[in-house]
Design a protein around this nucleic acid. Structure first.
Length: 621
RNA sequence: GGACCGGUAGCUCAGUUGGAUAGAGCAUCAGCCUUCUAAGCUGAGGGUCAUUGGUUCGAAUCCAAUCCGGUUCACCA
């Protein structure tokens, strides 16, 4: 039995793989090499898929490399002989290859400049360059999914940025994406902040205190825990043992009573709950807006928590589930290498899993989903695996489309963030800090001239938020990350700032040439290119050609880090190119036009890539 | 104990159908602004790819075992 996460990516991966290869230059080369070998050795069957194509290492001449070793045995030829034979054939029969070189079993092919300049002339000003029709699935991405008892913290940011970026990436590859947020708006944790507010607030509100709504409510959640801790201590001092004291603490009993009242539909409780959640939502809205995060569909647990019971009943009828003596309902997953799992308590009330079963079916029925992606931290790997397996056993059609996009927790150097210990890095504070840093560095670099105050604020925002998003997205999602707030986040090197800067430099050149960032295409399309591409120019074109493939791989793996890496590399190539060649004062008019076209395409590709992650690129900085 | 995830330079990380001398960034050191934005570029140093064995022309990558770290296995959500 494959774990849920592997299973999901497998289904999607195989389908994608077929279309995947048709577009890329490497696949064209693969086919050409296959054809070549076929006509050189008509009696031997060679599987095209077995031909390995790599990008040629920079220390050698060439752009792409055919690995010859696999055919040595098959064709009974020495690798170097084979390389010469195939290289000669390809250059003679295919205008796209202009030269070859065989070095110790590797056939390095030089792809013609015209292949790349054709691509350049076709796509340089296409703001959709990179998008594809990889698949046409209807996909829901559930992400964010906050609790309404406290503000968002740094860990949530990773979730939000991931969900948002992955949604964009899947859209860019042809899918119909629904961004969903399942708000955890009910339960004992909400009642905790409610009871604390009732006891200690004296009617205070966010308005009366000037606090942001989510912070205001979060403070009462903290207050609950402080009081609770003290009450437990008091009880223990009066001789009660710890477990008992934790159950008997008055404030906890009050919170539980509130939960019962809420479930019974008590009006006063319901009103308070609505009011306090309303405050939290006002706060969340501000934060989401700042982050540039949005959703197409909101689900509320208060509306879904009773779902799932019907599914359990059906499972009982089918005999897939069983009842214990106390009337509780279970499923036996030991055959799948998992455990027995409770689905209904003896008193008929549901547990977390029950409601997740119901919600999975609800989502599926709402949208007829092909896939349902859950962006949830890796501490819930087991839960998500069980969820999928149960739905599969129950024969629910939504089951196979479920995919857990599991990500590692963001930890502090001291360990996990714990709200009860006050070690949580608040999301809003973090954003503020980043923006302040952006301001300091901009002022320090003396780059504030020529901006209005409003423009400067927007610029700091773009740089600060960009750095934050990039920092959290550049790492493989499944890896946990350690974040040291004291060292904060650098704005140099492998950062959004680096990419933003490259973009701003390009825009600056275009401005000086009196060109907009979306120049007229005519003058360029008519350009006849006769001169050889320099090494720096060629590497940029090779990289640009790869962009659609990069998005596809990010879509298949659900991994925005691929795009971060790509955008950074492209920026690096641009900076090197910029240092070596003048654009405005190019050697001649042809080169100037060519380079202008190239930087337009670089800028356009960088914008597209960063836009997928919700990162904006300034025209000036 | 079972299951799952991770271990690559001092630090943070790339390295995906097995391919050439394992790459970036930060930090350190040495150069480069009269010239399209130096938030940049060029170069140097820095590695037992956790360990051991296996598979083969070839292993950071695949397999097995071991070590270390994490998460999880609730009538919590």
């Amino acid at each position: 039995m494959q774990p849920a996460s592997l299973n999901g990516s497998y289904i999607f991966g195989t389908f994608a793989h077929i279309l995947h290869c048709i577009t890329m230059l490497t696949h064209i080369i693969k086919n050409a090499a296959g054809q070549g070998l076929k006509s050189l050795y008509p009696d031997t069957i060679i599987e095209i898929e077995s031909i390995g194509i790599n990008q040629t290492k920079p220390e050698f001449v060439g752009d792409y490399t055919v690995v010859l070793f696999p055919f040595v045995k098959l064709l009974r030829q020495k690798p170097d002989f084979l390389g010469d034979q195939l290289g000669e054939y390809l250059v003679a029969n295919n205008t796209m290859f202009t030269a070859y070189q065989v070095i110790s079993g590797f056939l390095n092919l030089t792809v013609s400049d015209s292949f790349f300049t054709d691509l350049l002339q076709k796509e340089f000003n296409n703001s959709n360059y990179g998008t594809s029709n990889l698949s046409h699935q209807k996909v829901m991405i559930e992400y964010s999914s906050p609790n309404t008892n406290k503000p968002l913290h740094f860990g949530h940011l990773r979730n939000n940025f991931l969900g948002f970026a992955v949604s964009n990436i899947l859209k860019a590859t042809g899918n119909n994406v629904i961004k969903a947020n399942l708000v955890n708006d009910r339960g004992i944790h909400i009642c905790k902040s409610m009871i604390a507010w009732q006891r200690y607030a004296n009617g205070a509100t966010p308005m009366s205190t000037g606090l942001k709504g989510d912070k205001f409510v979060g403070d009462y959640y903290v207050k609950f825990n402080d009081v609770y801790k003290q009450e437990v201590l008091d009880l223990m001092n009066s001789g009660m043992d710890k477990t008992h004291a934790e159950k008997e603490a008055p404030i906890m009993k009050d919170a539980q009573q509130l939960l019962r009242l809420w479930e019974a539909g008590n009006t006063a409780t319901f009103d308070l709950w609505k009011t306090m959640n309303g405050w939290v939502y006002e706060g969340f809205d501000i934060t989401y807006k700042r982050l540039g995060i949005d959703f197409d569909k909101m689900y509320y647990e208060s509306e879904t928590y009773l779902l799932g019971k019907a599914i359990v009943e059906k499972g009982l009828e089918k005999g897939i589930l069983f009842k214990q003596e106390d009337n509780s309902v279970w499923i036996d997953l030991t055959a799948e290498g998992l455990d027995e799992k409770l689905l209904l308590r003896g008193d008929g009330t549901s547990v977390y899993m029950t409601q997740d079963l119901g919600t999975a079916v609800l989502k599926y029925n709402d949208y007829q989903l092909d896939r349902s992606v859950y962006v949830i931290a890796d501490e819930q790997n087991y839960h998500m695996q069980v969820l999928k397996v149960i739905l599969q056993k129950l024969g629910e059609p939504c089951a196979d489309g479920i995919f857990h996009l599991s990500y590692g927790m963001v930890e502090l150097p001291t360990g996990r963030m714990k709200s009860r210990e006050g070690t949580v890095v608040d999301a809003d504070d973090m954003v503020d800090e980043m923006i302040t840093m952006a301001q300091e560095q901009t002022e320090q670099a003396g780059k504030t001239e020529g901006f209005t105050e409003e423009e400067l604020n927007e610029l700091y925002n773009t740089i600060g938020l960009g750095a934050l998003k990039f920092y959290l997205l550049r790492v493989d999602p499944k890896k946990k990350m350690i974040f040291d707030p004291k060292e904060s986040i650098d704005l140099h090197g492998f950062t959004a700032t680096f990419i933003q800067y490259a973009h701003a430099r390009i825009c600056s050149i275009l401005r000086k040439e009196n060109m907009t960032i979306f120049p007229e295409t005519k003058q360029f399309k008519e350009l006849v290119i006769t001169q050889k591409l320099s090494k720096a120019e060629k590497s940029i074109m090779v990289a640009l050609e790869q962009y659609p493939t990069i998005i596809e791989s990010a879509a298949i793996e659900l991994n925005p880090a691929n795009i971060c890496n790509y955008a950074f590399q492209l920026s690096q190539l641009f900076n090197t190119f910029y240092d070596q060649h003048s654009i405005a004062k190019a050697e001649n008019e042809e080169k100037k036009q060519l380079r202008l076209m190239m930087i337009v395409m670089i800028a356009q590709t960088l914008r597209h890539a960063m836009n997928l992650m919700g990162i904006r690129l300034p025209e000036k900085m």
